[in-house]
Design a protein around this nucleic acid. Structure first.
Length: 231
DNA sequence: AATACTATCAACCGCACCTGT
DNA sequence: TACAGGTGCGGTTGATAGTAT
């Protein structure tokens, strides 16, 4: 069933991009906008495959990308989101608009990956415990917000820890809903979790502290007050 | 000063999903 | 409804820079 490759292997340049290529790509996209990647190599004369052009744009050339070290807040957010969403880097990146999925993925693999993941929430029980704690401590605001999304889910969450597990998809029987959609298309349960996630009292969690800076609050503010901005 | 080792990042590859015909 | 093409995503690899010996 061989599907043809996205581009001819012959005559396609690989490896690092040169500044000249970057300029060509950027000016083309400035003129035509991103999209129709298939046409980009043809129209620009770049000897690159369409995927390579898209990748270069989204990971490097796209305006608004923040490079350099991740802040404490970003790191915490990534850890939280990874625990919730798994390795869905694109979905995680949507919460960090200034970072690319590739960046986040690299950061996770080099700084955070297996040990942190294991210690943070390696098991269903762990997450379930966290969520039970959340349910216990959740201010009404959260419930109300969640309720606006869906009342049935809210009532369910408040009463059963097994339901919490199934919400997260630990129960195989619930995988249909879980798998059918990507994280971008948030179901009610995810909306709940998001609310929990961005609730600073939970994140700050009693304590710890590492110094919750204003930057974190800013980020949360954006998430809570202007979520559209994130997508 | 030279070499070896490690960490980081950019880019590629293949698969899965989405959309149009 | 089925098929084909395009796009997006996640995993992996290779190159380079930085650090230690």
């Amino acid at each position: 069933m061989g599907r043809p490759p996205c581009c001819d292997k012959i005559g396609v340049k690989k490896g690092p991009w040169t500044p000249e290529e970057d300029i060509i790509l950027v000016s083309y996209i400035q003129e035509h906008g991103p999209g129709n990647w298939r046409a980009v190599p043809t129209n620009t004369g770049l000897l690159r495959c369409s995927k390579s052009c898209r990748l270069r744009w989204t990971n490097y050339l796209r305006p608004g990308i923040k490079r350099g070290n991740f802040t404490d807040q970003e790191e915490k957010l990534i850890i939280h989101l990874q625990a919730l969403l798994g390795n869905r880097w694109a979905a995680i990146a949507s919460y960090l608009p200034e970072r690319t999925d590739n960046d986040i993925k690299n950061y996770w693999n080099t700084h955070l990956s297996p040990p942190s993941a294991a210690t943070y929430a390696s098991s269903a029980e762990n997450i379930s415990r966290l969520l039970q704690n959340w349910v216990r401590n959740t201010p009404k605001v959260n419930s109300e917000k969640a309720t606006t999304t869906t009342t049935t889910t809210t009532t369910t969450t408040q009463h059963s820890s097994t339901a919490l597990e199934s919400l997260l998809g630990f129960d195989d029987s619930s995988t249909t809903t879980e798998n059918s959609n990507s994280a971008d298309e948030k179901g009610p349960s995810l909306a709940l979790l998001e609310t929990w996630l961005f609730d600073e009292t939970v994140i700050g969690g009693g304590g710890g502290g590492g110094g919750g800076g204003g930057g974190h609050e800013d980020l949360i503010d954006v998430c809570l007050n202007d979520p559209d901005n994130l997508f």
